[in-house]
Design a protein around this nucleic acid. Structure first.
Ligand code: MN
Ligand code: MN
Ligand code: MN
Ligand code: MN
Lengths: 138, 138
DNA sequence: TATAATTTTTAGCCTAGGCTAAAATTTTAG
DNA sequence: CTAAAATTTTAGCCTAGGCTAAAAATTATA
């Protein structure tokens, strides 16, 4: 290492990562809720929590925030629904997740490992990189 | 979507992402400190904070944690040094960061975008995927 | 239908990492 | 050498998202 990049430029990289982390929970929740509704006809808190690997009290608190922010709706003690806003986000995230996962597999990563990596990577992929991932063939 | 993966399996993906996020701050700090020492002979709190895009008070608090965890050392009001443990982590992270960045550029991502994406992606790349990134040619 | 089991909510606690404001210390200039 | 400027530390506040424990509501069973 002989020279450092401009400080503001470098700061903008880290800032973008922090922004991505702020959206990440909402993204993972709505994507999961959409899948649960698609397959099981409903998204119950207990299933959401179990699949996220957190306690139901934690999931309940996050869902309260997502409801306040207009991503989900529910009646007390009933299952969770996506708003239009939530469904749109879920669709985008699901498409992005699939592109990242399939890219890794085409690259030669084992499907098991690809699942682990994709779950984190998906939130840090720019539109430019995503387009390249999408096009990529072996 | 017609079927969901096993719940425990899916939960393990999310758990791994949460684990990665717990190490992320330490990784970015030690890598940056190593670079500052390499280029400017010392890592000052004000430079660290500026390059991370956070206030110096925030960086100071994080550095106190990293010192408690044995990654860095410093005397009050003096510059920051890496312990052996911190330097080893920095070296690993720097190598990984470079592999991810250069992979993205070889893939065809513009260097500017690649910098943004690499800063987040690097923390979510398994050893298996990293090895594949390293080997990849155009 | 009453009771037991399950599910969801709520309360309260914790840590990480943002922030501002102000105090303490070091460094620079006059 | 002293006063001003810059840097670092500290205090106190905030939000997100983990946790446990317990209360409340729903659902299943006897
Ligand atoms: Mn994810
Ligand atoms: Mn990073
Ligand atoms: Mn890095
Ligand atoms: Mn991340």
């Amino acid at each position: 290492m002989t020279k450092l990049v401009d400080a503001k430029t470098q700061a903008s990289w880290f800032s973008r990562v922090r922004e991505a982390h702020q959206s990440e929970t909402a993204e993972d929740y709505v994507e999961l809720i959409a899948d649960l509704i698609a397959v099981q006809q409903e998204a119950r808190l207990s299933d959401i929590a179990q699949r996220l690997g957190v306690r139901h009290a934690s999931a309940s608190k996050v869902l309260a925030r997502l409801a306040a922010e207009g991503y989900v709706e529910s009646l007390p003690y009933r299952s969770i629904f996506l708003t239009e806003k939530g469904a749109a986000l879920a669709a985008r995230c699901k498409a992005r997740h699939k592109i990242v996962l399939e890219f890794l597999i085409r690259l030669g990563v084992s499907p098991e490992t690809a699942e682990y990596d994709a779950e984190g990577i998906e939130h840090h992929i720019s539109a430019e990189t995503l387009a390249i991932f999408k096009r990529f063939r072996g």
